[in-house]
């Protein structure tokens, strides 16, 4: 039987891929160009616009990583929203304010112009100018970095459980990871697969409420202190080799698919060579969200914020927008970059 839970979620009218929000104008020098359309970027745009700033957003996908979450249950006041629905609501708020969004394209270059204007190059071959730039580019799923992972990508190795889960009905599924994303993926997959094994190299750190749900399920096995060392298969994933660190044993788990949920790597894009980052590749910012590049700010998962959560990213975006507004108002601190660790925004 097909799973026919009706999840009818029409997008706003006029859904042409060439229609949608107003596109940014090449001939305008914006106060702020926001790169990224996840919670950090969209909330920054909202805050900046409400301060009277001329702002434009550049985002491949409105909602960002929220789109890969089935239910968002930890954003207060909005329980029972799917990640998709919450993404739509965020996007609607931005559109209602008339903020232009360029979606479907990436920013692949930047240049500091004279008069403190930063120019962005987009993959639609257009250029956009702003007095400030906010990097809210988020992150992409981290890979396990083990043999078989790349070879079997899209042939049983997946980084989107809600997308690819339905392809593995009644199969044996592995979830790699131990945080909230892994636990949520396992809960989703337990409804689809025959058996789900969650493999975590250390201890689980997912919310207690999620772990309690998982422990109730008969078809879910939880393994801690267990490292996945290799994914095997000819045409498709057939099994994984794991190492039990406590017993010092290696063994094989038969599996049809491996869902990797072990965290994310920051997206630095064309700014990569110029930004100061920490050991994890995350952008170092000061308390005003300034990076080491004058006029360039960063917020959300792309920065070294400790916890990668929707509400934290959104709040960080708001803070960045307020700092940017202040900097544009006072016209100072242009040279005070992250290196100075200024406390005053």
């Amino acid at each position: 039987m097909l799973d026919l839970h009706l999840n009818l979620t029409p997008e706003k009218p006029a859904p042409s891929m060439f229609t949608g929000p107003v596109a940014p104008d090449e001939n305008v020098v914006y106060d702020l160009l926001v790169i990224g359309a996840g919670p950090a970027g969209l909330n920054a745009a909202l805050y900046a616009k409400r301060k009277g700033r001329n702002v434009a957003v550049f985002g491949d996908r409105v909602g960002g990583q929220m789109l890969n979450t089935s239910m968002v249950e930890n954003y207060i006041g909005t329980s029972q929203n799917s990640g998709y629905e919450l993404s739509q609501k965020f996007g609607n708020d931005i559109e209602a304010l008339g903020i232009p969004i360029l979606s479907g394209y990436l920013i692949d270059g930047w240049q500091q112009e004279e008069d403190d204007v930063i120019k962005l190059y987009a993959t639609n071959r257009k250029q956009y100018r702003g007095k400030t730039v906010l990097l809210a580019t988020g992150s992409t799923p981290r890979k396990l970095g083990i043999p078989g992972e790349i070879e079997l990508a899209d042939r049983g190795v997946s980084y989107c459980a809600i997308c690819d889960g339905p392809l593995f009905k009644q199969k044996r599924l592995i979830v790699a990871g131990g945080g909230n994303a892994a636990a949520e993926a396992a809960l989703d997959l337990a409804r689809i697969g025959r058996e789900v094994t969650v493999v975590q190299r250390s201890e689980f750190r997912a919310d207690h409420i999620l772990m309690a749900e998982l422990e109730k399920l008969d078809n879910v096995t939880l393994l801690t202190q267990t490292q996945i060392e290799r994914i095997n298969g000819e045409e498709h994933v057939e099994n994984i080799e794991v190492y039990d660190k406590v017993r010092g044993e290696r063994y094989v788990i038969e599996a049809d698919a491996v869902f990797v949920e072990i965290g994310h790597d920051p997206n630095l894009g064309p700014f990569k060579m110029d930004l100061e980052v920490n050991d994890n590749g995350e952008i170092i910012v000061d308390q005003c969200n300034r990076t080491n590049i004058p006029g360039v700010f960063a917020a959300g998962d792309v920065t070294e914020t400790m916890y990668k959560q929707i509400v934290i990213a959104a709040a960080d975006g708001a803070q960045a927008a307020l700092s940017i507004n202040n900097e544009l108002t006072t016209g100072e601190s242009r040279m005070q970059t992250a290196a100075h660790k200024e406390r005053n925004c």
């Binding site: 799973d3 999840n7 789109l67 997308c163």
Partner: peptide, 8 residues
């Protein structure tokens, strides 16, 4: 596609 895939 799958029906639960927001990117599809």
């Amino acid at each position: 596609v799958t029906l639960s895939c927001p990117h599809c």
